[in-house]
């Protein structure tokens, strides 16, 4: 079973993602802050990270950069934000994909599937 790490400060979103992806047969780990996410990534074997950009302690780009520096085998990351406008940040290139959050999870599901299969 593949493991997904969801880093998002919104409790409802975390629960939504957990329920949705568990139904699709993924193990889902949840983190509320950037630091929590980095810790979980260091301690577990993660196959893919779904990373929010606006987090209470640091923003998603910073998480991305620290991840590349701290973790040996960096899992692919999907940046997932309610806010467009980060497309031009060079750190975004470290991520596999930049998605705008939507109530329709179809696109996110498809992207996860594609990234994990590619890996």
């Amino acid at each position: 079973m593949k493991t997904l790490l969801v880093v998002d400060d919104e409790k409802n979103i975390r629960e939504l993602y957990k329920e949705t992806f568990e139904k699709d047969n993924y193990k889902v780990l949840l983190a509320e802050t950037g630091n929590e996410g980095l810790d979980l990534a260091a301690q577990n074997k993660i196959d893919l990270i779904i990373l929010d950009i606006r987090l209470p302690d640091m923003n998603g780009m910073e998480v991305l950069e620290r991840l590349s520096a701290g973790v040996k085998e960096v899992p692919p990351v999907i940046l997932n934000s309610a806010y467009p406008g980060y497309e031009h940040d060079s750190s975004v290139w470290l991520a596999e994909k930049y998605l705008i959050k939507s109530g329709d999870l179809e696109e996110l599901k498809q992207t996860i599937k594609a990234v994990i299969e590619k890996k």
Binding site: E10, N12, I13, L16, Y17, T20, K101, G103, D104, L105
Partner: peptide, 9 residues
């Protein structure tokens, strides 16, 4: 996102 997502579930 929550409304739409949970509605789907």
């Amino acid at each position: 996102i929550s409304i739409g997502g949970f509605a789907q579930i």
